[in-house]
Structures are given as structure tokens and as C-alpha cells.
């Protein structure tokens, strides 16, 4: 079980968190101007990387804040956590 460093609360057990999929997928500002394909790209298509991935997490049973995480899916190493709206700290 992971030990996750919530940017607002500090280190907490994974059981307090829920995962929210790939990060940095921005909801289009003008959805009505998109073709079906473009909208489908936003709606359905997600990467599933073996390796370093940027993910959304929610401290659901804590401060309820959403934040982002840099995690290596091949060994579950969490390289960094950062707040919503911030740039990923590592490439």
C-alpha cells in the first residue's frame, strides 16, 4: 500500500485516497466547436503507460483536494506530487 504525500496534509495511507486517471487532460473550452472525433479524443482516449505517468489523485477521506502525482507504474514509485494547475516538477 502506497504512502502518499498529500500536498495539503502530508503523508497518509493509500486507503485515504482515490485515483482519478490520467492528469493534464483539459476539458475543451468550446466543446460545441469540436468534431465527433476531437470530442471522442477528449472523452475516451487515455494513455496507459508502463513507466512514468502523470496521474490525478483525490484525498477523498481527508482534505478532499485533488492533486497530481508523478508515478512509475512499473514499480509504483511516486516521484513527486504537485497541486492542480502546477506544472509537473519532473520531465
Amino acid at each position: 500500500m502506497f504512502l502518499i504525500n498529500c500536498p495539503y496534509c502530508g503523508e497518509r495511507d493509500q486507503s485515504e485516497f482515490s485515483a482519478g486517471g490520467e492528469a493534464h487532460i483539459i476539458r475543451p473550452k468550446q466543446p460545441t466547436e469540436l468534431s465527433d472525433d476531437q470530442w471522442a479524443e477528449f472523452l475516451f482516449m487515455r494513455k496507459n503507460i508502463k513507466g512514468v505517468q502523470l496521474e490525478r489523485w483525490n484525498h477523498a477521506h481527508g482534505c478532499r483536494k485533488w492533486f497530481n502525482m508523478v508515478r512509475d507504474t512499473s514499480n509504483d514509485k511516486i516521484h513527486a506530487v504537485y497541486k492542480m494547475g502546477e506544472k509537473p516538477p519532473i520531465k
Partner: peptide, 13 residues
Amino acid sequence: LSKLEDYLQTEWP
């Protein structure tokens, strides 16, 4: 509630 929080915090801060 968590869906609304998600939109508020991540799409419409």
C-alpha cells in the same frame, strides 16, 4: 459531491 468537487477544483477553479 465528489464529481462536483472534481469539476470545481480541476476544470473551473
